[in-house]
Design a protein around this nucleic acid. Structure first.
Lengths: 240, 240
DNA sequence: TAGATTGTTAATCGATTAACAATC
DNA sequence: TAGATTGTTAATCGATTAACAATC
């Protein structure tokens, strides 16, 4: 059994984070294919549908350790299983969420996490009106009782959706109670032990990317027009 | 004026996306500093607080075109302004959101977007109970009226928070009405014109990153223990 | 068998980090 | 002046893309 686990571990290659983000996208497409009854799928099938290059799909999928067949591609079911195993969707991880405002509630209501191996067992808030209520079948408890539950259930993952002003304090409480990984949705930088894993989720950072993309696209169009004008006036120096 | 705009445009360097995501984080820290009355700030001040290397901070900030003073760093106010200008937070962009479920509502309620230059002018839904209601002062309208409003207000940014099953259709309607950039929170791949900008926001992809980080950390600890044992048994071959 | 597709090794591209001269 | 910090050029690292042999 222990030996077997060692066998299953794919060679200790480093895993590109972008690959990690793409794998759930492949998985979503594949489950659709499975429902349609598809047997096999190739890198160009996946890439064509999801707008990735086939070589990138091949590289990403190679990480899961699956062996495909030249000319056929991979078996759809087998590939789904390999991705799930690789991403750890088959061994559930317990988590809890602190702050059940509108964002926290929307996370509690999202069905996709459970099948991705994340089991949110409770929510915590300081708002009396929310305490002892349920959201999507998940009980909201008093924030004061959070450390107790973390210890009792040995919870390792904490999700923070409190206001920014409460994020640091909440994170510290989580850490001291035994949480080792924090998924932080509050717009605040956390100061924790080096060994504590933090993943920041920032919509404002995403928006920055979107805005720049829009700006660049606009500039591209303007430059294209400028060039047209240049040509129209018989100017020779392109500035592309 | 036109000439001036050309001057302000920093040299046409490519902008690393990760830098773009870090700039709002710097901005948040700087506004805090400003409130505390700080005059100047250095790369190591910022890096020390936010856990970045000073050289990375310097590189990122150089993108904004600000000129610092050796030994002093940058003027806090000036730096805030440069970041805001660079990210386009000073020229508002109108947007609308389709799907006012719990996630859509939490986006409507989030105050941070407005100061980041995103002005969500309306929400749309098919749920009769939501139509003509307001969320955070923003009116919810009938989805059927979305194209009209896009055209009338010349809105270019659409946010999708519908169920995954409605995302493609919604995106297509947005595109046909004149939207040129879509921020998609639904777990669905969109098929649109090549020129339409799409930014995917996927919590499941983020979760994949968090899970792997946890798994790697666990493995690191196990390996460290193995090594201790190896040393304990006077074995010579390290496997790190 | 011929052709398509995998898996692997090599080349390119982009982002981070290092080194260091300029300068306040 | 001496020391700290910027801004720039070079080196390294990581991810993507290309090339191609293996093979079904």
């Amino acid at each position: 059994m222990e030996k077997n686990e060692d066998m299953i571990e794919t060679k200790n290659q480093p895993i590109p984070l972008p690959s990690l983000k793409r794998l759930p996208v492949y998985h979503r497409y594949l489950t659709g294919l499975k429902e349609e009854g598809a047997e096999n799928v190739s890198a160009s099938d996946i890439g064509g549908e999801l707008h990735f290059l086939p070589i990138q799909v091949r590289k990403d999928i190679a990480l899961t350790g699956i062996i495909g067949k030249p000319k056929l591609g991979w078996n759809v079911n087998e590939l789904i299983n390999h991705i799930e195993n690789f991403l750890g969707w088959n061994n559930n991880k317990k988590a809890l969420i602190a702050g059940v405002g509108s964002l926290g509630a929307s996370i509690l209501k999202y069905q996709g996490f459970r099948e991705s191996g994340l089991d949110i067992v409770a929510g915590f808030d300081i708002n009396e009106k929310l305490i002892d209520k349920e959201v999507n079948g998940i009980k909201i408890l008093n924030m004061a009782d959070m450390p107790k539950l973390i210890k009792r259930m040995k919870i390792k993952i904490g999700i923070i959706t409190t206001p920014a002003s409460a994020a640091q304090e909440t994170a510290k409480i989580m850490e001291e109670a035994g949480i080792s990984a924090i998924w932080n949705f509050a717009p605040a930088t956390l100061h924790l032990k080096k060994t504590t894993i933090i993943l920041y989720e920032s919509m404002v950072s995403s928006l920055a990317v979107l805005s720049k993309k829009i700006e660049m696209e606009a500039k591209k169009i303007i430059n294209a027009r400028k060039q047209e004008v240049d040509y129209g006036e018989f100017k020779m120096h392109q500035k592309v």
